[in-house]
Design a protein around this nucleic acid. Structure first.
Lengths: 335, 335
DNA sequence: TTGAAAGCGCTAACAA
DNA sequence: TTGTTAGCGCTTTCAA
């Protein structure tokens, strides 16, 4: 019980028992070609000396660090933190540790993060972000380790990924509104260069219009609003455009719109219906509660991490472009 | 530009330039005892070969991993994720990476996490949690690396820590209510065994009562409610106790109480005043907006990490029990 | 200013 | 079943 004495090494254990390093190593790594009696003696010595394997030495010798890198825009964003929780839980289950880096969704920070993870010899990487430039993509590839995109960037098959079908989701809810004779449906997206918004969500919105025979009106698309305060500001413009319904890309911005619109005397959903995407706790605390597209956030993280473990083990992965089912949760902000 | 060819090592660089390993190592580590001409040649070769130092080998040789462990109850909790953001930003500034582990505030998981971090040879640890048992404390100490507690457990000086003065904060807000002749102030705390609640917040509450000459009524103290739904459930009991004001230990539970009370037809703040602690975004999205004790969350994380860098460098740290100032943000849920 | 050489603590053939 | 022996890629004295 006295583990004070200067970190015992595998050498000390071997010496104490009178066996070779290799034997101790075998016991530690659970190899079965060790005689039970020997194993017991070794185990006893390990306990006695309080021996803990040094993962760094192990990593150097085995070229495996049992560490994965997680690249995330911002951990304080509820959407990403829930993904991360799924990642972390599964990582731990498979004995991996998580090295976390925030990037604010910026290319430069992503580059630094990836370079750094490569130096630390991580065994794999989970990448989250709303965009993935060629530059970052090639840096990621250059690391030579498996990478899985989770719940945000939807790579066009360039890398394994786990997502929901953003296009289908946005098409579905837009159609829902159009079918109620709301011809003016506002669409609120993140910044211009987000692949996920420009390429998938906008596309779903346009498809819905097309199918309904409605023309696309650019003045109903609002880009670049991020966070609660931005949503509050946007409210006036949305009202000005005489929108009858709003489809928003995330909960905080939707909540900002919801509150500001009501503070201005309009009624939700009577005067304006609102639906958001992500279904974080924010949707529940709102009054009225916000309808939302539910993405299985924890599961996206968990599935991505599970896929990564397979990739790291060079196991067979079936489909590597996973789309998890989303659901539409209808609450009081829609009718 | 072709970094494809099998990770160049320091050896390859040395060979390419015709110098020894030691010289390359010196250049990489910025030692100034290298002739400029030599340095340039080495740098050129590094660029040419796309050499990236292997941090694992470095860690083994130098016994420094430039990695810190961060132990957190739950990354999806806005309070902790904001602390973590502060930690991560400062860590990166000082060239450290962050190894993250969720513990759900459970002793067993904390023990595993610490053991694991020790094996990975982290240079230091930031510990967050609402309690710190003797067992965990001694495990933490046994790692032999510096540890700083951040924003949650308030160690009684046993370990360096960064916090706000929870007792003072709770005393202040309780007094505020008592001064308005609200003799029945409800106190909502986390689970029983949380040092931070039992020892500090409750103490502040009691002090306020004592100073005001009010007697302590146990039926006004509600323990164990966690999260929004729990807050909603609690509302009925609070009303039943004829509380005139509520002091809650976190925002989500406060929000649950706020919404449930209003849904039941009571007016806030006219019938019941509510104040929460943490001042996360939740306080802003509430209607009416929630008054709250603002803890400088990002700063607590940042300051804790900064202190840890000093400790890891064996620099002088002045006071190691830091209390950052809190503020009382008054919004519409109080009068 | 530079180099030689000895590890850091472990894994992983290969032998025995 | 066990041991021997090379490394893994780097830092760091100690000499030159």
């Amino acid at each position: 019980m006295d583990e004070q004495k200067k970190n015992a090494t595998i050498y000390d254990v071997a010496a104490a028992v009178g066996v070779s390093l290799a034997t101790v190593s075998r016991v530690v790594n659970g190899s079965d070609s060790v005689r039970p009696a020997t194993r017991d003696k070794v185990l006893a010595a390990i306990e006695e000396l309080g021996y803990q394997p040094n993962a760094v030495a192990r990593g150097l010798a085995s070229k495996k660090t049992t560490t994965v890198g997680v690249v995330i825009p911002d951990i304080t964003n509820l959407f990403y933190s829930e993904l991360t929780r799924g990642i972390d839980d599964i990582a731990r289950m498979y004995q991996y540790d998580v090295l976390l880096t925030n990037t604010d969704d910026e290319e430069e920070q992503a580059m630094t993060a990836i370079k750094n993870l490569a130096q630390k010899q991580v065994d794999g990487i989970i990448y989250m972000g709303t965009k993935l430039s060629e530059k970052v993509l090639s840096a990621v590839r250059a690391t030579g380790v498996p990478v899985v995109l989770a719940g945000s960037v939807a790579g066009d098959g360039a890398l394994p990924s786990v997502n929901i079908d953003y296009t289908a989701a946005f098409q579905e809810i837009t159609t829902k509104f159009l079918n109620k004779n709301h011809s003016r449906v506002a669409l609120v997206l993140g910044s211009k260069d987000r692949t996920i918004d420009e390429k998938f969500r906008l596309e779903g919105y346009k498809k819905a219009l097309e199918e309904a025979g409605e023309s696309f009106d650019e003045s109903l698309v609002f880009t670049g609003a991020k966070g609660y305060a931005a949503g509050q500001k946007l409210a006036a413009q949305i009202i000005e455009q005489k929108a009858q319904a709003v489809v928003a890309y995330e909960d905080e911005v939707a909540l900002g719109i919801l509150n500001a619109v009501q503070d201005a005397g309009y009624k939700v959903p009577e005067d304006l219906e609102i639906i958001s995407s992500n279904n974080t706790t924010y949707t529940l605390v709102a009054r009225p509660e916000l309808s939302s597209i539910n993405q299985p956030k924890y599961d996206i993280g968990a599935v991505a991490m599970r896929m990564l473990t397979k990739l790291m083990n060079k196991e067979e992965v079936g489909e590597d472009q996973v789309k998890l089912p989303y659901t539409l949760v209808e609450r009081a902000s829609t009718m």
